[in-house]
Amino acid sequence: MKVTIEENEETGKFTIKVKTEDGEEKTIEIPKENLEEILAKLPPNVEII
């Protein structure tokens, strides 16, 4: 699983794009305050880009 994290400076939010092993892609946008909480919940086999 690969996770790409991009900061949107205009909105102050982060866009998180997840690509699973089977090629499925999902995108979510979260507030900056929630980034550490989300990262802590990721499984250890995740590659963060």
Rank of each mutant, 00 (worst) to 15 (best):
K17T: 15
I16N: 00
I49Q: 05
V3L: 07
L39Q: 00
L39G: 01
L42Q: 00
G23N: 04
E7A: 10
D22S: 10
K2D: 04
I5K: 01
T27R: 06
K26S: 12
E47F: 06
K2N: 06
N8E: 03
N8V: 05
P44N: 06
V46G: 03
T20L: 11
F14Y: 13
E9Y: 12
E7F: 15
P43C: 13
E37P: 03
I28D: 02
E33K: 06
M1E: 03
N8D: 09
M1W: 15
I48V: 12
E25G: 02
P31E: 14
E24P: 04
E7W: 15
L42Y: 09
T27G: 03
E47I: 14
K2A: 06
E37S: 08
E6D: 04
V3Q: 01
I48A: 02
N8Y: 04
P31R: 10
I49D: 04
D22K: 07
E33F: 08
K17W: 14
G23K: 01
L42P: 04
I38Q: 07
N45H: 10
P43A: 04
N34M: 15
K26D: 06
E6L: 09
T4R: 01
E33H: 08
I16P: 00
I16S: 00
E7G: 07
K13N: 13
E29T: 10
I5C: 05
N45C: 08
E36C: 13
P43M: 05
D22I: 04
K19Q: 15
I38F: 15
G12R: 03
I5R: 02
E25H: 05
K2W: 15
P44A: 09
A40D: 05
E24C: 12
E33R: 05
L35D: 00
I48D: 02
G23L: 03
D22F: 09
T20N: 10
E29C: 12
L35N: 00
E25C: 09
V3K: 00
E37T: 10
A40H: 09
T15N: 03
V3C: 07
I38H: 06
E6C: 13
I38L: 15
T11C: 08
N8C: 07
K26M: 14
P44Q: 12
P31C: 06
N45E: 08
E29R: 04
T20D: 08
N34T: 08
L39C: 04
E36Q: 13
K13G: 15
V3A: 01
E29P: 01
L42E: 02
V46M: 06
E6G: 02
I5T: 02
P44R: 01
P43R: 05
